[in-house]
Amino acid sequence: MSVLTGSVLTVDALRIDAGAIPLVRDVSFAIGPGERVGLIGESGSGKSLTALSLLGLLPEGVRASGSARLDGVPGDLVGADERELSKVRGKRVSMVFQEPMTALNPVMRVGDQVAEVMLLHRTQPSRARALAAAVDLLDRVRLPEPKATARAYPHQLSGGQRQRVMLAIALANDPALLICDEPTTALDVTVQAQMLELIVELTAERDSALLFITHDLAVVATVCERVLVMYGGRVVESGDVYEVFTAPRHPYTDGLLAASDLSAVDERGRLRTIPGVVPGGGEFPDGCVFRNRCPRATDQCVQTPGWTGTPERGFACWHPVGGGQ
């Protein structure tokens, strides 16, 4: 896939291995400035590993290869050393994790934590200016009484408030790319709705690109314009959210949509399911990763299917759904 000019992030032929176990294969995609792209898949699909590899945060013993270029960063993110990455993380690219309590420092006031990221990257000239900017940011993420909240410790805040602090830290240096990994999974629905609105609003304001990872199809459709569907460490389908969700081509996307639609049932009132279970890491079949659960699989599927379509809209399947055989 060619490197699109004007992209904020261009990932090309990314692969991730844990020793001899392949975890992610041939992942290529690009995100434009201000674009909101969703990365969906079930546990074990490789979506979180893909995101972590962009920040150089892969766990011990897990290695990435291939290429990931970020606009404004001279080198490649894949294989960059810790010194280079620490200049990029929190400045050009930042991340919001699912569990804010483990991501925040429990013995540091939240205002200081927001200020710290600006002081580390020298985007504010002094401690006083950084703290003032931090209070401003806490106000922008709509925390009540931002001055007082800045002096609070993480345990004094609710789950939703902590996640707002995380967002303030992530956006403090106006990153070119914000990565969110299941940022609202642990939150109540009403809090989730506010948080999603805030993510969209604040990234749009900064023209930051967004890579949004989730297993929730409704959430990704609410937030994103484009979506990448991952299964077994590969991108099996990608495209405009509306197109992919209304006219899926890959049987996995089709099955996922059917299984998540709780209003569509058969004559016995039962939901449509994908047969079987998601295999463990490295236990996916060779060839097409979905073929052992796919209702359309044939002998041809032992060969890895190539990409059909354009980098923006396409799928990897020998026997796609729709399009009349």
Binding site: E42, S43, L217, A259, S260, T273, V278
Partner: peptide, 8 residues
């Protein structure tokens, strides 16, 4: 649970 397992 994941979506496909949830349905099962």
């Amino acid at each position: 649970l994941d979506v496909s397992v949830r349905a099962q």
